[in-house]
Write a protein that binds this DNA or RNA. Structure first.
Length: 671
DNA sequence: GGGCAT
DNA sequence: CGTAT
DNA sequence: GCCC
């Protein structure tokens, strides 16, 4: 069963697609990299993040001003204050707050049984509540029906109904966690009306409250804390966990829910798997915008020469689509070095000394300085060929090579593609529901690809991708990215409590909108990781949240030559849809990438998946050039003796490579 | 003319 | 070749 | 396309 599930769900990319058209792989379509797939009309929403970005730029600019550009002038250390703009991106689950039991002689609620809805609570909150329940009530029960009081952080009816049937909820007092805390503090049950979790349940909550039966409303008992959940207030440094992690920013708290075993006392997550508590600031004075390595430069999300880099990026994309990967790389490097240049470029002299700006690109910049545009870029951008190739390769699974072949066949529009790939009108109508992507019955390998006749038409992979294109082209707001993280984390917590995660990708670098969501997971216990990716994907699929699995990897497909930690990464590339119970439900499907790493390689995975692409390339280049190391998201290896390194934190990985620490928000080395 | 991340 | 950063 |  489980296995057939996989083959049912996973859309395999048919190898025969590539032979579909003119079988010959034109010249050197060298190794192409990253997803150059951008819709030609993709909007840039940079304006939306101007304030944030401008702020970053100002800091950078100030810094470089203070350097005075004079090689000998030592900079006055820039008061690098937190350029933190609001939403920090770390999303690890926080450790459970150090628990402590109130030394109470007597239970505050000796006759009350509570049911704790774990959803929307983080592990810390959950363990705290279970502690309180254990020590101050009759106990926590595993079934809402058996409880007198239901405790939940959920505020919405629809959401609660996912965990407690409404008709049961109506026979209980349904209150916020603060009720339990405050009741414990006061040594008795407080009026539930003041703590009702869901407004619709106010009456029944009051009615079933185990308080002293004094009518609720007016008697506020003069406790002002009611509304404010105060986790820290109840914590003392735990003897167990290291110097108390003050749970001040419990970032993206991972709501949890699990089979309610009674003493839910999750193991504290080791400190080093969590983001550093005060975050480590970037020492901009040690970075150098002239460096040949993007990992030594500070690259903001939006730079002072954004208009110029956008022009250059058009040419870059064109080179990529045309199969000129090396040329494209040069433009990418040019864009990258300009991204880190902290001034508005007003004269050619400023760029002449920058690396990666050679004869050709200098000429283009000159034109841009003179006229405010680059004719070649404009011409490319206006050309039907470029627009069509861009459109085609915006479809998942269609890269430059396929796009060109389709173009050469005379196809020009999405409709052409749909006709070509045999998308039926009714398929399009099906889009909003969960589409089981059944793999087209495949002939055995020896029968496949013998003749070209059976390919092309009706390729299931591309058909599906075509159907998804519209949704996947939409950007994802930060808030929704975070919600996706919470939702996924909640499911994972049920599956395997105690996991840690970081939302990586552009989100972590501070982008206001993302094209997809990438999450890296680990578990303090390495033995818990194996197979987790598949299990989570299966669960999300059963719950209707994952509608497609584009790729699912276990791991052993590595080099036969000695290996160690190579089965240390599991990865799923999926399509996700927000469950209807979420306030963020829009019905728009999103690309979601899940990466599971054993703890040893968690931080290298986080670094790798945080990007940006150019930043990663240059870290790898740097590791090779300067240290003879191979760096990738599943580990760091010394080349001459294959010794492996397992940095315990993200910063340690930088240290290991002799690199200055660069915060994610300064890693935007790509456009 | 080789190298360009893995 | 296409995907991920 | 740029660097060594």
């Amino acid at each position: 069963m489980a296995e057939s599930w996989t083959s049912l769900l996973v859309v395999r990319k048919p190898a025969h697609l590539k032979r579909m058209l003119s079988g010959r792989p034109a010249k050197a379509l060298a190794v192409n990299t990253g997803p150059r797939r951008q819709l030609h009309l993709a909007l840039h929403h940079d304006d939306l993040r101007l304030t944030q970005q401008q702020q970053q730029q100002r800091v950078l600019l100030q810094h470089y001003r203070s350097l005075g550009h004079m090689p000998f002038k030592r900079p006055a250390p820039v008061p690098h204050q937190g350029t933190e703009s609001g939403g920090e991106s770390e999303s690890s689950s926080r450790p459970p707050p150090a628990k402590q039991q109130k030394t109470s002689m007597q239970k505050a609620l000796p006759d009350t049984t509570v049911y704790i809805v774990q959803a929307k609570l983080d592990v810390g909150g959950i363990s705290e509540l279970f502690e309180l329940a254990e020590h101050h009530t009759k106990g926590a029960c595993r079934n809402a029906m058996d409880a007198d009081v239901i405790i939940t952080a959920i505020a919405m009816r629809r959401r609660l109904e996912r965990h407690v049937p409404w008709d049961i909820a109506e026979t209980k007092a349904v209150v916020t966690p603060a009720w339990l805390r405050d009741s414990v503090d006061h040594g008795r049950a407080l009026p539930c009306g003041d703590y009702v979790a869901i407004q619709d349940l106010l009456e029944t909550t009051v009615e079933h409250c185990p308080d002293c039966n004094c009518k609720p409303c007016a008697c506020s008992d003069g406790d002002s804390e009611a509304a404010t959940p105060r986790f820290e207030a109840k914590q003392l440094p735990s003897p167990l966990s290291s110097p108390s992690t003050p749970v001040k920013q419990r970032a993206m708290s991972t709501s949890t829910k699990k089979e309610e075993k009674k003493p839910v006392v999750p193991q504290p997550v080791p400190e080093h798997l969590l983001p550093p508590d005060p975050p480590i600031p970037t020492n901009l004075a040690k970075l150098d915008y002239m460096s040949r390595y993007a990992c030594q430069r500070a690259s903001p999300l939006v730079c002072p020469n954004q208009a110029l880099v956008r022009e250059l990026d058009i040419i870059r994309r064109s080179r990529d689509l045309e199969g000129e990967a090396r040329s494209a790389l040069s433009y990418e490097r040019a864009v990258s070095i300009i991204k880190a240049y902290p001034h508005e470029i007003r004269s050619l002299k400023q760029v002449e000394k920058l690396p990666f700006i050679g004869v050709k690109i200098t000429g283009l910049i000159e034109e841009f300085l003179d006229t405010g545009k680059i004719t070649e870029a404009q011409t490319i951008n206006a050309s039907e060929r470029f627009q069509t190739l861009s459109l085609f390769s915006s479809i998942y699974g269609i890269g430059p090579s396929t796009a060109i072949r389709l173009y050469n066949l005379g196809l020009r529009s999405l409709n052409d593609l749909e006709v070509y790939y045999g998308v039926e009108p009714e398929d399009v109508a099906l889009q909003s529901q969960i589409v089981e992507v059944e793999e087209k019955p495949r002939k055995p390998a020896w029968q496949r690809g013998q003749h070209k006749g059976d390919e092309g038409l009706g390729d299931s992979w591309t058909r599906v991708a075509l159907g998804l294109r519209e949704d996947l082209a939409k950007k994802i707001p930060r808030a929704e990215v975070e919600e996706m993280g919470r939702v996924v984390m909640r499911e994972l917590e049920e599956l395997e409590p105690g996991c840690v995660s970081t939302i990586v990708g552009g989100y972590r670098r501070g982008k206001m909108e993302s094209n997809d969501v990438d999450i890296v997971f680990t578990h303090p216990d390495p033995s818990k990781v194996k197979g987790l990716c598949k299990r989570l994907v299966r669960k999300l699929h059963e719950r209707g949240m994952v509608t497609h699995v584009m790729h699912l990897s276990g791991f052993h497909a590595h080099n036969a030559l000695r290996t160690h930690h190579w089965d240390s990464l599991e990865k799923a590339l999926t399509v996700f849809i927000m469950p209807p119970s979420s306030p963020f439900h829009t019905g728009v499907r999103r690309r979601l990438d899940l990466i599971f790493a054993v703890p040893d390689v968690y931080w290298t995975a986080v670094i790798g998946w945080t990007g940006s692409i150019m930043f990663q390339r240059d870290i790898r280049q740097w590791a090779k050039d300067k240290h003879g190391m191979k760096f990738d998201s599943s580990g760091i290896t010394r080349r001459y003796d294959s010794k492996e390194f397992f940095p315990k934190t993200e910063k340690e990985a930088f240290d290991l490579l002799g690199l200055e620490w660069v915060e994610p928000k300064w890693r935007n080395a790509d456009l």
